[in-house]
Nucleic acid binder design. Sequence first.
DNA 1: TCTAGAATGACACCTTAGTTGTCGTTTCTA
DNA 2: TAGAAACGACAACTAAGGTGTCATTCTAGA
Lengths: 165, 165
Amino acid sequence: MEAMAARHNRGTGAIVDGKAAAIAELMLEVAQCFFRIRALGQKTGLITSWGGGAFGFMRSLALLGPLTVPQIAQMRPTSRQRMQRLADELAAEGLVEFIDNPKHRRSKLVQLTRKGAARYGELNAQLLAIASTMGTALGEADIRKTAEIVRQLSDDVKVRSERLR
Amino acid sequence: MEAMAARHNRGTGAIVDGKAAAIAELMLEVAQCFFRIRALGQKTGLITSWGGGAFGFMRSLALLGPLTVPQIAQMRPTSRQRMQRLADELAAEGLVEFIDNPKHRRSKLVQLTRKGAARYGELNAQLLAIASTMGTALGEADIRKTAEIVRQLSDDVKVRSERLR
DNA sequence: TCTAGAATGACACCTTAGTTGTCGTTTCTA
DNA sequence: TAGAAACGACAACTAAGGTGTCATTCTAGA
């Protein structure tokens, strides 16, 4: 009975979809988890903000190589202008540099400098150090599967979100 | 080999803990997913903000019954003062009301009004409607397990975070 | 019981991350 | 080649929430 796709809720008479409820719960859980992660990140000095923060920006460059500012903005939860400003700030700190873009004269590619790569390495090591102390009761396989399902949900949400633009 | 708890990363010589990397990845995935959920919530009008928003506040009351403002603030990712203000605003809208607290004369209990409960019901139904269109490729069992593991991670992060207060 | 310290409500100020808007220029595309 | 879209640059502007403080109230320990 519990496994039925839809069933009636005694009392209200409303139709309750168990799977939908489970997904809703997962979404709320993800949100709460995010806030805790962000709080931990801030306390440890790993990040200041998230969407417009340097860590994610540098991570994109570290994983994908040189990108233009608009490209980075597209894959981050913030605006093009915000990323532009961050890029300028990081460039001022010598963590990234602008290099010529063969496909676009005006829109330069942003690339980690030696210093920037080193800084990212430190931050990533810090993240891994934190991560290594967590999930002691969980197996690696479970964690990977969880990440995979969260990613699928994430994609679903994105698609759904873009449909009502 | 891949399943070993720790192994050397060719090239850098750094010790790579596969499980830690998986947890780090999961945390980043959760963060990205949150931003997409928030964006969807805002587009659909379900929420405006998250931490200081009305939905989470009302949900706490709907699930747990009357609570004091400080109690609500403790379980939400925001400050006591913020929740106080939100409580006042919601009271002004007639969605919640303050009732006498037998255990504390000054700190009243906040409770959903009839109108507030109805409003929460609508919002929750909207959330379920959205949720029911997602995760079509996933089974309910997988979703529940995912939520459970995210919750465990969330708790781990919280504990870790509170240790360095 | 008395008192020190913590919790609470109320209010004001402020920080800041991020958005929005615009403009001139450059690039793409039909 | 013309019109549309993308880009960098810059300037408000906003909203969300943090921080600080103070009077009042509660709690717990001597």
